[in-house]
Write a protein that binds this DNA or RNA. Structure first.
Lengths: 151, 151
DNA sequence: GCTGAAAATTCCCTTGA
DNA sequence: TCAAGGGAATTTTCAGC
């Protein structure tokens, strides 16, 4: 379990992972060294999986966002399906789901034409029998997981 | 537009934003100073929006993932709806969509009971007339946007 | 968890292609 | 316009307590 200090550290790092441990420590009433030790342990425990950057999709030709639900006539939770989906770079997320469809993928393409080409590729995957595409008109927000600091 | 070097830098930072500029520069055949200057400009231009950490959802009591499609009898792309969705911490993403539903939200809760409570809150939002919930059984992957280095 | 010091890195500025 | 180089200032990192 995380204590209050851990949660504050995680929340602050989600907002800006470039800040110094001195700044971080000051925010939670610890020395830089102790803050560093806390964060090191959070990484070690796998709570913090990695430090990464947030890229603006439009800047890298990924301005079109859509979610595609895949229907299938076979179980899609196997390694072959996973590999097939992993090999498609436009797919940002892939999930096996409960309900009428079998899988849900989040995709980003440069244009709607590219989206169409992508759907063709998805249809070609073994077991896929249908697709239902949800095109995003506007994203209100995409934000880090809330870790409840101060609750 | 990004050139080849920029794309490699971005891809490497997506994988690990803690590496030094010396390491980064070596990977693209630049000095540490020049690599730093490149990255600084990518931030300035907004290509890199921020440096952040990836948190393991299960470690922070967000082990249940679901997507909820919201049907509505009024336009949901307004500020009031945005504010209402923003105020719910379990919502990680909120999008206005084309098609039969009006909005799609990605939510993470600790338990399915919490998911149920969340659905109640979503129903209470002005204009919302229906919800369709897609529960994720297994996530194959959630990865950074592909920026096509070397293509 | 703190302090303090050594090592490494960042970051700015100047020069040059 | 872009990269290299120098060097000061900051930050990280690792002792010992």
């Amino acid at each position: 379990m995380l204590d209050e200090i851990d949660r504050v550290l995680v929340t602050r790092l989600q907002g800006d992972a470039t800040q110094s441990y001195a700044t971080l420590g000051e925010a939670v009433g610890l020395s830089a060294g102790s803050a560093h030790e806390r964060v090191r342990k959070l990484r070690e425990r796998g709570v913090i999986r990695r430090t990464t950057i947030d890229v603006d999709p439009a800047s890298v030709s990924r301005g079109v966002l859509a979610f595609v639900m895949l229907g299938a006539d076979a179980w899609m939770g196997d390694a072959a399906t996973r590999d097939a989906l992993t090999a498609i770079p436009e797919i940002q997320e892939a999930h096996i789901i409960a309900g009428t469809a079998s899988a849900l993928v989040k995709v980003r393409t440069a244009t709607t034409e590219d989206l169409q080409a992508l759907l063709r590729r998805l249809f070609a995957i073994d077991g896929v029998t249908s697709t239902q595409t949800i095109v995003v008109l506007e994203s209100f927000f995409e934000r880090p997981i809330d870790v409840d600091p101060g609750r």
